[in-house]
Design a protein around this nucleic acid. Structure first.
Lengths: 224, 224
DNA sequence: CCACTCATTTCACTAGATGAAACTGGTTGC
DNA sequence: GCAACCAGTTTCATCTAGTGAAATGAGTGG
């Protein structure tokens, strides 16, 4: 196979990438999807058809692909089951608000094994902005998110210059769940030369306030 | 390949089935997943690892697989984008209530091309019950759902013996969206010998009431 | 210590994925 | 009306990459 003792199914991976591309974009034509995934159209078509056949995608009249019933079923199932999904849904509006008030990109992160994993974001609209960290993991011991998720100084914002990338500054605060346990962290990330002094202080205050608002939100929804 | 001019990627399909199995179940071990999908463990493991590598699944400490960050990201994205997903989420509690009052399984169905597609369900808890129609499509012209989705007799319940399977009776009512347009149908499905006369009448009333409640719900959420 | 279960790795085989190229059908421009 | 173009679809010879039985390893408990 590829090279080492690691075996992964290439064609499955391609199909998953296609799925990701289509769902992220909302709707894509064959050509667009093929270009994004860097596949010949014939191969892309086969995989898209497979996804369609299994109901993960549907094909609209115009020929473009979008999310299908099977995927929606699973999406809803995972949302109802997974507390993490509930967390993301609850956090999204807060992220949007946080980004609006600070002008910088904001993120939601959780503990995954011994790393912090960025789960969701609201991106800044400014030209120079922090972008694309969703899905990325960073170590705990050298970062502000890590410190927040490790439970140091709860109820306080950490404001630092990132150790991960040199030009990035962060303001981070911990979020607690219904039972008071630590569940996530909110961060505001931006370029270091912009996020200093006064701006950083404001970001710190905003992120703290938002974190407690989200914590309250999480406490106030316990039906099912 | 298989037989006709239809080409689908088998390995991709297997990976998707595995994904479906795991997400539906919430969490599965390798052995369980392999048995459900009817695959040798070695093959199942390879696909599960592929899914894990791409973040669609995560592996817990005990070794069991469950939904991963990538899938959640896409799930949330599709929910925020797709009106159909909003519909499912809004409908679920109503389905639960409907099943509780009638004692029979209830379903949400929408128009997909020229068929009715069952999207979501709340299953009856009785031993003899209607089960497993989620994801299934039925023709429009011979069914009660079809009639409801075709817009005949809005604001009225259709109570019939199913043309699809002999022992099934149905009570169906149409659901309208915020703009008044027809968007879905709610059905209560049960065994014909149980769903007769009085019981059927009660089911008809319940489904009608629930349909209008859901319609009102849909009208009352228009932010973003 | 052996028997048992479940996860992982190995490996020889070939079924099945691949993608260039040919084809179809629709749209534009001259 | 014809030619050039473009997006989607189908075909097919090539050979990679997925397959699964079996061996191995890691845990459990009797």
């Amino acid at each position: 196979m590829s090279e080492s003792t690691l075996h992964v199914a290439r064609s499955a991976e391609r199909a998953l990438n296609l799925l990701d591309a289509v769902v992220s974009a909302g709707a894509l034509t064959l050509g667009e999807a093929a270009k994004i995934s860097d596949l010949p159209t014939s191969t892309a078509l086969r995989h898209l058809k497979t996804l369609e056949l299994n109901g993960y995608l549907t094909r609209a009249a115009g020929g473009s692909f979008s999310v299908g019933p099977t995927f929606l079923r699973l999406a809803v199932a995972s949302l109802e089951a997974s507390p993490m999904a509930r967390l993301i849904l609850a956090a999204q509006p807060h992220l949007d608000a946080l980004t609006k008030t600070t002008g910088e990109s904001s993120y939601l992160a959780v503990l995954e094994h011994d790393h912090a994993l960025y789960l969701a974001t609201a991106e800044s609209t400014r030209a120079i902005r922090h972008a694309g960290w969703v899905g990325r993991t960073v170590p705990l011991d050298t970062t502000a998110v890590g410190a927040a998720l490790a439970g140091q100084k709860p109820g306080q914002a950490h404001c630092v210059i990132s150790a991960v990338e040199p030009d990035v500054s962060a303001a981070v605060a911990a979020v607690s769940g219904p039972d008071g346990a630590l569940v996530a962290a909110l961060s505001v990330l931006g370029p270091s030369q912009r996020l200093t002094g006064k701006a950083m202080k404001a970001a710190g205050a905003a992120v703290l306030k938002t974190a407690s608002a989200l914590s309250i939100d999480l406490a106030g929804e316990q039906p099912s």
